[in-house]
Design a protein around this nucleic acid. Structure first.
Lengths: 339, 339
DNA sequence: AGCAAGAAGCGAATCGATTCTATAATTTGA
DNA sequence: TCAAATTATAGAATCGATTCGCTTCTTGCT
């Protein structure tokens, strides 16, 4: 309620003196300091961030856009970012693009309108041209891509080591004796989808298992797409004996498809998914997953953004890769008839 | 980048004229309007929200504090609020109190520092005195309690109809023939915990089943507390044949306890939980749950807040109750030996 | 023709901070 | 002892918008 002006007038001192006390800078005598501090305390003074922000040209606010707020993976990512930023007294402006380009576009524009000092973006699926317009939308607000990024990011990016993760998941299945391994991939417009598929291919190549294009399905980030791809896969003459599923919602859909196709996991089909979440141990069967360090992605991205804000303007875009981890539970096992 | 000043100077017109064009108000000739609009377009002009906010005394930003960002229930609540607010061109400032009073306090102060026009609060567990200090922390920023509220909220609140929900869950178990029904309750410092327990008691009374205080356990909002309460319950001489669990994390913990106690659900124990989430159908067994309309809570709260902002200052606090719904799956059944 | 009403545009105050410069008072050093 | 340095405070410009009041120029009406 009280402003710095009112405090100054009330005390009969100048605004700048009060400001000096508030910000602990400049020369203020101990007596004066005490007097001002008392008044500040009494009036419950809190600086107006908009005024300060206007003057300083910064808002101490970071915008974070994710494709799905309710996906526990992104929630954990958010928390990682929020945690780090809160410790630096930055606030977090949240937005949910719902995997829709139009929404993401609006949020980017809105955030860039000088309200946020920087932007953390988990981009939604979109075409190359759409992605190319992002720099224009945000002007010169620093931006860091998190978890997903365009093929050639113009800004910093913080991703999981998806090639290695895809490689590890596939290798695990190969070691169990599987040869007909399908992959439920994400679209290839963004790096993480492409990288996971890349890892899958690499693992097959390393074991000299021929790549069967029919075993590569493309879904989205929904349970439904997992369900339909799964159904398609299992209704074939020779269904795969194992599936790598590239995100957590598709994994759930695949589980339903499995049930509908009267197949049992892991007896008939082994499944390994991505983006481990807290209920995986309670599912039937408990799912083997690739654990992508969501919270760490969030905090690492926030850190990268802060580095930019502290004036690493000129430096070229940096790309950080975080290791993922295989968590084995009960959804993977040896195939009934190897080969 | 470009400011209204620069545009005006560049065009040789006054600032107020440019402002009139930007805000489509006042008298501006079509010719002038076109000229200004062209310049605006060319310069990619976007108003500086901090300057506008300072002048207007509002930030078009709402603060939302939840106790756990990664709990899918709160994530859905957030999305409900965000969705509605985005449509009104309000931004959402997110915070995660981690169920810690100190954090919540900091966020409240930070938000109230005139940066947010209003606050949506899912309060964390706290003592009466702590809760009583909230009005002081936020000054005269409008606040709406969501999902949880103090016993006598000083502001508006939007809750689920928890008494009825607790009643329905318990009645369902009673109808199946259960008589020794335990409840894993939340602490009673906030309204929703108290109300759910209240509904439980009412249902027992309606069926003339004696209330056994030993069957009432108090946990928190963590998987762990559900686990330990569950273990305690099942290790007794005469364990309950059914349990009502008042939130989703405790339900998960209880499931683990069940397994450790070598009991099977629903054969040995029936379970009904609160706050349905997307993976419930995939759990073993698929859980019967009380579905609390999380997204609707969020949007209804946002609406209530908007009503306050539009100048319903004087009116007394309003309390809105949203109906919850029983979703029956496979975790509830008749007891082996009724009674 | 005379005059009020309305249209079109300008200028300046304002929101609440920060910060540079100016000035007065005090201390320091040789 | 006096100039220089330091300390303490005041004053004013500034950030980028909004908005009120003012002036000037058209119209329309009688």
């Amino acid at each position: 309620m009280a402003t710095i002006n009112e405090i100054a007038r009330q005390l009969g001192v100048s605004i700048s003196t009060v400001s000096a006390v508030v910000n602990r800078r400049g020369y203020v005598s101990p007596a004066m300091r005490a007097r001002v501090e008392r008044a500040l305390e009494e009036a419950q003074y809190r600086p107006n961030d908009m005024a300060r922000g206007l003057r300083l040209g910064q808002s101490r606010t970071i915008g974070l856009i994710v494709p799905d707020l309710t996906n526990s993976f992104f929630a954990r990512l958010m928390r990682g970012a929020e945690d780090y930023l809160a410790s630096l007294d930055y606030r977090l402006l949240m937005a949910d693009s719902r995997e829709e380009w139009q929404r993401q576009r609006e949020y980017l524009i809105s955030f860039a309108g000088r309200k946020t000092d920087g932007i953390l973006l988990v981009p939604c699926r979109s075409t190359d041209e759409q992605i190319a317009t992002i720099p224009g939308l945000i002007g010169n607000t620093p931006l860091v891509y998190v978890d997903r990024s365009p093929m050639n990011p113009t800004g910093d990016s913080v991703l999981a080591d998806n090639v290695r993760a895809g490689y590890a998941a596939t290798s695990h299945l190969l070691e169990l004796g599987h040869r007909r391994i399908a992959i439920l991939s994400e679209p290839l417009d963004l790096l993480n989808g492409a990288d996971r598929l890349e890892g899958y291919k690499k693992a097959l190549r390393a074991r000299r298992v021929a790549l069967d294009r029919n075993l590569i399905c493309f879904g989205g980030d929904t349970e439904d797409s997992g369900y339909w791809c799964g159904l398609d896969l299992f209704k074939r003459g020779v269904p795969p004996t194992a599936v790598v599923v590239c995100n957590n919602l598709m994994t759930l859909g695949l589980l339903t498809a499995l049930r509908d196709a009267r197949l049992e996991c892991p007896r008939d089909v082994s499944i390994i998914g991505f983006d481990d979440f807290e209920w995986c141990p309670h599912l039937s069967p408990p799912l083997s997953m690739v654990r992508v360090p969501a919270a760490e992605l969030g905090s690492a991205a926030a850190k990268a953004l802060m580095r930019r804000l502290r004036g690493a303007d000129g430096r070229p875009p940096e790309s950080t890769l975080l290791p993922a981890q295989l968590v084995l539970r009960k959804s993977t096992g040896s195939p009934r008839q190897p080969g």
